[in-house]
Computed example of a mutant assay.
Amino acid sequence: MTLSGRDAYRDELTRLAEADRRILCLEADLGGKNHPFQLKHPERFFNLGIAEAAMVDMAAGLASAGFKPFVSTFAPFAALRAAESLKLTLGYLAAGVTVVAPYSGVSGAWFGTTHHCLEDLAVLRAFPGVVIAAPHGEAETRAVIAAAVASGRPHYVRTGRNAAYESLPWGDPVAWEAAGGELCLVSVGEEGTRLCLEARHRRPGLAHAHLPYVDHEHLAAAAVELERLHARFVVVEEHRAQGGVAEALALLMPTARVAGVNAGTGWPSEGGDHAEVMAALGLDLRAVLAAVDG
C-alpha cells in the first residue's frame, strides 16, 4: 500500500534510526498512540505538546550536541507560529534540524481556516541556507528524508495530509515526466503535481517538470535546466502567488514567459473538502488548462 507523505516520513525516519542513533524525533502532539518511531525507539521520541517554538528551540540545542533532530507539526504552526525560532535555528545558526510540516496549503481544510497554510514557502525561502523540499509521493518523500539525514543541513519539508501518490522518477533539481515543446508545466508539491498530471492526461503532448526542492539554491539550478529546453512555463503550486515558486522562477528566467496557477490573494472563508477549498481559491484543473491556453 502506498503511504501518504507524512506517513512515509515517519516510516522512513524510523527505518533510518535503526542504523543512526543520533536521529531523534520530536512531535507537537501529532503522533497519536501508534507513531512508528515511538513504538520502535521510545527513548528517542519526544512529544512536546502544542509548544512549537519551544520544540524548535530544543531541537537547536540537541543539534549542537551532535544529534540529528527531526521535528514535526502542522505547517501553519511550524512556519508561522514558530517563525522566529525557525529563523534563528535553521537560518542564523544553520543548525542541522529538519522540520517536517504536514497539512500544508489547505490540506487541513477539515480543521477550519486556522489550519490553512499558504505562506510557508515565502517565509522559509527568506531564510538563507535552508533546504526546502515539497516532495510528491512516497518514494520521493523517503528520498528527501534520507538526504536530510545524510547532509546534516537545516531542512524544511512540506507535505499534505492523507493523500497518497506514486512518485515520479527521482530527479534533482528537476524530475522530468516529459520534455519537448515551447510550453512546460512545472509542479510543486503533492497537489500541484496531481493537477499537472491530470492536465497531461487531458493534453498528452504537454511537457511536465516537477521540482522536489524549492529553495533558492535548487531553483537556480533548476532554472538553468528548464530554460535550456523551454521558453514558456505554467507553475502550479498550492501556495499564494506572493513569495511562491512561480515568482522566484520568473526572476531567475527573465527572458522566459512564466505564469502561475496558485491560491491567489484571497482568504479561504470555510473549511471542508480539500479539493473544494482549492477550487474556491481558483486552484483546479480548469485553471491549469486555462493558463496553458492563455
Rank of each mutant, 00 (worst) to 15 (best):
T98K: 04
L124N: 12
A231P: 00
L3W: 07
A222L: 07
R44W: 06
Q242H: 12
R22F: 08
S72Q: 08
G243V: 04
L226Q: 00
A146L: 06
A246Q: 03
L121I: 13
A209P: 03
M55P: 02
N34G: 08
Y165R: 15
M1C: 09
A209W: 00
H210F: 12
E191V: 12
P173E: 09
Q242C: 06
E166T: 12
L80H: 09
L124Y: 09
C117Q: 11
G205S: 06
A222N: 10
M253H: 10
G108S: 06
H239T: 00
A146R: 15
Y103A: 11
A82L: 04
Y213R: 15
S72K: 01
F70I: 03
Y103V: 10
D215Y: 06
Y213C: 02
A101R: 05
L168H: 03
P212W: 01
P135D: 07
V99I: 12
H201G: 07
L219T: 04
S151F: 06
V100L: 11
L229A: 13
L86H: 09
S64W: 12
H230C: 01
P135R: 10
T159L: 15
V131S: 14
E12C: 14
R194A: 15
L195M: 07
G5Q: 07
Q38K: 15
T89A: 13
N47L: 06
V292N: 11
A94V: 00
R10C: 07
G282K: 08
T141A: 09
I132R: 01
L121G: 04
K40N: 09
S269G: 14
A8Y: 08
D215I: 05
L124M: 15
A222Y: 07
A126C: 09
L26G: 12
A94D: 06
N47D: 15
A133E: 05
F67P: 00
A207N: 02
R44L: 01
S151D: 11
S107M: 04
R81P: 11
T265D: 12
C184V: 04
A51Q: 12
F77C: 04
H218T: 08
D57T: 13
P135Q: 12
V144L: 09
E227L: 01
G129R: 05
H218S: 14
P102A: 03
R6A: 03
A82K: 10
C196P: 07
D7S: 13
V130M: 06
V144H: 10
H216P: 03
R240H: 06
E191R: 14
A248I: 04
T2Y: 02
L249P: 01
A148Q: 10
W170L: 07
E237A: 04
V235Q: 03
P173H: 07
F77S: 02
R15Y: 02
A248Q: 11
K68D: 00
M278Y: 05
R240A: 02
V245D: 00
E182P: 13
R44N: 08
A275P: 01
R81A: 04
V144P: 12
K40A: 15
S151E: 10
R228I: 00
T113R: 13
E227N: 13
D7F: 01
R22V: 04
W170M: 00
